[in-house]
């Protein structure tokens, strides 16, 4: 379970997130919706440790942690970026296996085996030796998901997972997210897309810009 207490985030004295508290149960899907500029991306960046915050507490399964400062390989929070940010110089397989090998110290064969299994479940069979530029948007996104999952995160975050995709692919994304829920993954999804949000959400968080 992820629990956030009284999170406040300012950019140069301008408060973006004001005293926000919420929690996500294990294997729950939380969607965060709200108008543009409400601070959804900023919240996700705080949770995943990419942005410092001014005050607040984070608990993962009852244990306090600081996502910005704790950079060990435990309490990992996976991120699927809006623009995926795959590594263009690495193959699909290397994108997925790089961090498990370098950070989790998995052997090459071990990392490769679980990567291939994951890629296959995400309908990416046969794509492992391609480079990101050779993939469609939806395929890139699934590689990004596989890459994040390979680090065995406790929580997986998505920023606007449907924004860069054709509308027909929306159903595909919600199917993947629900499938991961079946596997027990806790997920936080930021989105503009209300239909999509209502489709996948177990719980919804509405945020509005701070006045």
């Amino acid at each position: 379970m992820l629990k956030i207490n009284n999170l406040t985030k300012k950019f140069n004295e301008r408060t973006i997130i004001d005293n926000l508290s919420f929690e996500v149960e294990n294997s729950e899907i939380l969607t965060i919706v709200g108008p543009s500029g409400a601070g959804k991306t900023t919240l996700l960046r705080c949770i995943s440790g990419l942005e410092s915050f001014d005050s607040g507490e984070f608990y993962l399964d009852g244990k306090k942690f600081n996502p910005y400062e704790d950079t060990g390989s435990e309490s990992v929070i996976g991120v699927v970026f809006q623009d995926y940010q795959l590594f263009p110089n690495l193959t699909v397989l290397d994108n997925v296996t790089l961090a498990p090998q370098m950070v989790l110290k998995q052997s090459a064969t071990e990392a490769k085996q679980s990567a291939l299994k994951r890629l296959s479940r995400l309908q990416l069979d046969g794509k492992e030796n391609l480079y990101p530029y050779q993939l469609s948007g939806g395929q890139k996104q699934r590689v990004a998901i596989a890459r994040a999952l390979a680090m065995q995160p406790k929580i997986l975050c998505y920023d606007e997972p449907t924004s860069a995709l054709d509308p027909e692919l929306r159903g595909e994304v919600s199917r993947i997210i629900k499938g991961l829920k079946q596997d027990g993954m806790t997920q936080i999804v930021v989105t503009h897309d209300m239909d999509f949000a209502n489709d996948v959400a177990d719980k919804q968080l509405h945020v509005v810009p701070v006045k």
């Binding site: 950079t71 990992v76 623009d83 940010q85 950070v103």
Partner: peptide, 23 residues
């Protein structure tokens, strides 16, 4: 090099030098 590449490497817990070297 896109700043997002460093951030992607960071959330994957790659160290600074691993990021420089591999990415």
């Amino acid at each position: 090099v896109d700043r997002g590449q460093y951030e992607a490497a960071k959330v994957l817990r790659l160290s600074y030098w691993q990021t420089i070297r591999k990415i």
